[in-house]
């Protein structure tokens, strides 16, 4: 996955609560067997009308937000279905980080596994950033992950928290499976002990 160091770009505000993964990636885009071609599906119903024409009033279709890298979102973003297609589509659309008050659990894990940075902040700070994101004059942010800080043009500096292991994996773009397989011996030893005590689990 693509490492996340310091990224700069426009942010867009999507304030609705409970934006679910059916909205982020509607079901007609779930029929593939690879990860590609999902940019078109991201927020499809919000971005395009029934005839497939872009809706001019949707924020990501407006020229000031053409190169959007960050979303500032409402609470419980990414709830619902486990579909990782939602995260793949957002990344393919160019989104690198999402800032909100709370994220649904499976969505958060999917994001971490693909290098999409999620930042949780208190409602006041999210509201402040949403205000910046909604203003085309001030919507450029810089997110410095190693420094754990969000910077805006008006000298705003906002620190954020992230678990150390998650940050390390994002900054280095680590392959989690490779890292785990380094412990294959420990897994095998555990498995033998575990099944010896529970013989009914062996099929």
């Amino acid at each position: 996955m693509q490492p996340f160091d310091t990224v700069t770009g426009p942010a867009a505000s999507l304030p609705a609560a409970n934006v679910d993964t059916d909205v982020i990636m509607p079901k007609q885009f779930l029929k593939g067997i690879d990860r590609s071609g999902l940019a078109i599906g991201a927020f499809h119903t919000l971005r395009f009308d029934a005839a497939g024409a872009p809706r001019p009033d949707f924020v990501l279709n407006r020229p000031e937000w053409a190169e959007t890298r960050f979303l500032v979102v409402g609470s419980n973003f990414g709830c619902g279905s486990s579909r990782e297609h939602a995260v793949w589509g957002l990344l393919q659309l160019g989104i690198r980080a999402i800032i909100g008050t709370s994220f649904a659990g499976i969505f958060a894990d999917n994001a971490a596994n693909n290098g999409l940075l999620l930042i949780s902040l208190d409602p006041e700070r999210v509201g402040m950033l949403a205000g910046l994101a909604a203003d085309p004059e001030r919507n450029r942010l810089t997110i410095d992950l190693p420094g754990q800080v969000i910077l805006a043009g008006d000298a705003t500096r906002m620190a954020f928290d992230i678990p150390a292991t998650r940050k390390d994996a994002l900054v280095r773009g680590l392959d989690a499976i490779g890292t785990t397989l380094d412990q294959a011996g420990a897994i095998r030893a555990f498995e033998e002990r575990y099944h010896a005590a529970r013989p009914w689990l062996l099929r």
Partner: peptide, 16 residues
């Protein structure tokens, strides 16, 4: 609990 596709792959390769 539910997991995404990357974690399915992780599970399949490692049982963890």
């Amino acid at each position: 609990f539910g997991i995404g596709t990357s974690d399915i792959e992780h599970y399949l390769a490692t049982s963890t």
